[in-house]
């Protein structure tokens, strides 16, 4: 066993060396930081890290903080609708563009360009367009529709949908690009076969094509999930968490406590909770998608 392992290492020695930078980054930057922040979540750290131990006190405080609970709930709502709408819209766009439309590259560019803009820009510009005093509502009223109401950014019950609107605008082009790429890779034979059988196109897409695009779908959902879990800039630019705490999100809670409120202990407790949640949700996805059948590398 030992000799065999030595031989294995010797044969692949350069590969081990080549992966050292990655190992260093994972161990020091990622695992090290995670461990460090988990450690701090059990301390009473305020503005600067402290080395004491206060048990689960920060977690108790955290789940007793209504703003944190609101943030979690908001993230769930935003993530659900964001992923759903981005996915459906991205698929529809890709399928429609794939029908040999004219000016295909123009459409593709139009749907993809928001992804090139930063989240800050997405938040600022939609905040402006949805602002009742300046944007669509004011314009419609200017045309004489005095009863027209579009007050999402200022309405506590609708503000999350304003945020979702901006993020969908930003992200659905990415899904479109990925799905479109997938569609281009599908064998044309399928269409011939199904047409002979008289199966309607929508059913072919739903029950044959989409399942074939599973890797694309998973990858796009993973990329979108990364951005939604970290979502901070767009909310700050658009609503700064308001009205009240109606559009607060966990990343903003962490950021505010880390800096504005000088409460590192609570912030790291919050980020630990996020980390565990991500682990629980994402680990099975990542495992099944990227490792289960990676027979060649392992």
């Amino acid at each position: 066993m030992g000799a065999e392992f030595t031989r294995h290492v010797r044969r692949n020695l350069v590969a081990y060396i080549a992966l050292l930078p990655m190992a260093a980054v994972v161990i020091f930057a990622y695992l090290g930081t995670m461990a460090w922040s988990v450690r701090l979540s059990f301390s009473s750290s305020k503005l600067l890290p402290r080395n004491d131990f206060v048990g689960f006190a920060q977690y108790v405080t955290l789940f007793d903080t209504s703003r944190w609970l609101t943030s979690l709930g908001n993230l769930a709502v935003i993530a659900f609708f964001f992923l759903l709408i981005c996915f459906v819209l991205g698929c529809l766009l890709a399928i429609f563009i794939d029908q040999n439309v004219r000016a295909e590259s123009l459409f593709r560019t139009v749907f993809l360009y928001p992804y090139a803009m930063s989240f800050v820009v997405a938040g600022l510009i939609w905040q402006w367009i949805l602002n009742p005093d300046l944007g669509i509502q004011a314009t419609m009223r200017g045309f004489g529709f005095s009863g027209f109401v579009l007050d999402w950014v200022v309405n506590p019950r609708m503000v999350l949908y304003a945020v979702i609107l901006a993020t969908v605008w930003h992200g659905s082009g990415l899904v479109m690009a990925l799905i479109l790429a997938g569609l281009r890779g599908i064998d044309g034979e399928i269409w011939r076969a199904t047409r002979i059988d008289g199966i309607p196109a929508w059913r072919v897409y739903l029950s044959i094509v989409l399942p074939m695009l599973r890797p694309m779908i998973i990858t796009s959902l993973v990329l979108l999930s990364i951005s939604i879990v970290k979502m901070y800039d767009v909310v700050v630019a658009m609503t700064n968490g308001g009205p009240g705490t109606a559009s607060e999100v966990p990343a903003k809670f962490i950021m505010d406590n880390l800096f504005e409120r000088a409460n590192i202990g609570l912030a790291t407790a919050a980020s630990t909770v996020m980390l565990i949640t991500v682990l629980l949700v994402m680990a099975p996805v990542i495992y099944s998608q990227y490792f289960r059948k990676s027979g060649r590398a392992a």
Partner: peptide, 19 residues
């Protein structure tokens, strides 16, 4: 008061105003 206490106070006020 410390910043995090003041932060919680402000959270209460904004919720009081908006809910």
């Amino acid at each position: 008061m410390e910043e995090f206490v003041y932060g919680s106070v402000q959270d209460i006020v904004t919720e009081l105003w908006n809910t």
